[in-house]
Amino acid sequence: MRLKCPVCGERDRREFYYVGDAVALARPDPDAGEAAWDDYVHNRDNPAGVTRDLWQHEAGCAAWIVVTRNTVSHEILETALAADVKRAMS
């Protein structure tokens, strides 16, 4: 599997650290309540198909990257800098 770092270009999977579902971009308010935090920390849609997850180009430029990919075929559909995605959300 090769991921395209928006900064460095296409690189081997070994260069990246996997964090998991890109929920981290939508962190609840500190006082959002137990259910919201449980959902954020633990519960997952866990889709068989297109998912969005967070990777870090650890052995490269160290950027955090949102990867849109297919969990069934391992196809990479899109990658974007997490900073840009986060900015577009607000």
């Binding site: 998991g20 579902d21 959902d39 633990h42 519960n43 997952r44 849609d45 866990n46 889709p47 068989a48 969990t71």
Partner: peptide, 18 residues
């Protein structure tokens, strides 16, 4: 491994990643 999908049929989200 399919627990997430079957739970979703009952409207549940589980603390599981496959």
């Amino acid at each position: 491994g399919r627990s997430g999908q079957v739970a979703a049929m009952a409207g549940m989200r589980l603390p599981i990643e496959s």
